[in-house]
Amino acid sequence: MADVDTPQADELAKEESAPARRSGKPTMQVKVYAPFKVYFEGEASSVSAVNATGPFDVLPRHHNFLCMLVPCNLAIVSPAGNKTIKISRALMHVKADSVVVFMDV
């Protein structure tokens, strides 16, 4: 009987928790929306914005994060192309490679 490589359980778990990849770059799910309009929804490799502490970037595998954004340009680097969204008031929630920006709240 030929030897077959079977991945160990912890390796499988690592794979499951690893961020999704698009053309070799890890990505995360991003959604930027207001009650009646979705500004962006899809995969992105980074999200940059500004809060009261200063400018910051969110990359895949970021720690759980909840913050208030100050008026700024939210920059999204995505495999489909980069996008900039003007923000006046928003809340950002980051959890398990999912970034949700609630606009106008």
């Binding site: 809060n51 009261a52 502490t53 994060f65 909840l66 913050c67 208030m68 809340l91 609630f102 709240v105």
Partner: peptide
């Protein structure tokens, strides 16, 4: 969502107060 499991910016109190206003608004 606690300070143990999340990073809050500028602070947990400010985010909670902001969220309270947001909820009232919504």
């Amino acid at each position: 969502v606690t300070e143990k499991t999340y990073i809050f910016e500028p602070s947990s109190y400010q985010v909670a107060a902001y969220l309270e206003n947001s909820i009232l608004r919504l």
